[in-house]
Amino acid sequence: MSANLLIVDDSTSMRQMVAFALTGGGYTVVEAEDGIAALDAAKTQKFDAVITDVNMPRMDGIELIRQLRALPNYKFTPLLMLTTESGADKKSEGKAAGATGWLVKPFDPDQLLATVRKVLG
């Protein structure tokens, strides 16, 4: 059975590129345009991993990770940040919120797939 992944990014083209890479790798993908939409989706269905941008309107990726970690279903789910932010302070903020890993845009599709495979075990 293929893993169910949630991609969160306010950029439609970025969501499409990530979705294309992941569906090509055999994963099922659901897209959300910001943290609030992602949280709603996460409460109605189970995702095996979440890949989120950091800077988004309404709810950013770090707050999304905090909120997901508070849900019983997402205590141990891999939550990856995919962002243009590469600063150590943002990374440590993400880690503190519960992020599993950090990928920097522009991303390499093969590296993205390898990271997703690794965190899904």
Rank of each mutant, 00 (worst) to 15 (best):
P57I: 05
D60Y: 00
V18A: 14
S13P: 01
M17L: 15
A42T: 10
P57T: 09
A38Q: 04
T44L: 12
A21C: 05
A21R: 01
D10C: 04
V8H: 03
R58F: 03
E31K: 00
A21T: 03
E33S: 13
R15A: 08
V8L: 06
D48S: 10
M56N: 06
T23D: 06
L39T: 04
G35N: 06
E33T: 07
I51S: 04
N55V: 08
M17S: 14
K43F: 00
A38I: 09
M59R: 11
V54L: 14
V18L: 11
G61R: 03
A42N: 08
T52R: 06
V50A: 10
I7P: 02
V8A: 07
T23Y: 03
F20N: 08
T52Y: 00
L22D: 03
T23Q: 15
G35A: 12
D34Y: 01
T28V: 12
M14Y: 01
L39Q: 05
Q16G: 01
G26V: 11
A37D: 14
R15S: 07
F20H: 11
N55W: 00
I51T: 03
Q45L: 05
I36N: 06
Q45N: 04
Y27K: 12
M59S: 10
L39Y: 13
Y27P: 08
G35Q: 09
F47T: 11
E31D: 13
F47M: 11
N55R: 12
D60E: 07
V54D: 04
T28A: 10
G26I: 08
A38S: 05
V50T: 13
M59L: 14
I51Y: 02
V30W: 01
N55D: 12
V30E: 12
K46G: 05
I36G: 02
T12A: 14
V18H: 00
M14P: 00
R58K: 14
E33R: 13
Y27D: 00
N55Y: 01
D34R: 00
L22Q: 02
T12V: 13
G61E: 07
F47L: 11
N55T: 11
E31L: 01
F20K: 06
D60S: 03
D10P: 01
T23V: 15
F47E: 11
F47K: 10
V54H: 02
D60C: 05
M56C: 07
D60A: 10
T12I: 12
I7H: 00
D48F: 02
D48N: 13
V50M: 06
L39S: 04
G24F: 09
S11V: 12
L22V: 04
S13V: 15
G24D: 13
F47H: 12
I51F: 02
G24W: 08
D53Y: 05
V30I: 10
Y27L: 09
V50I: 15
G61K: 04
P57E: 13
I51Q: 07
V54M: 05
G25D: 03
M56H: 02
D9C: 06
A19I: 01
K46L: 13
S13R: 02
D10E: 05
D60N: 15
T28Y: 00
G35L: 12
D34C: 01
A38P: 02
Y27S: 04
E33A: 14
D48T: 02
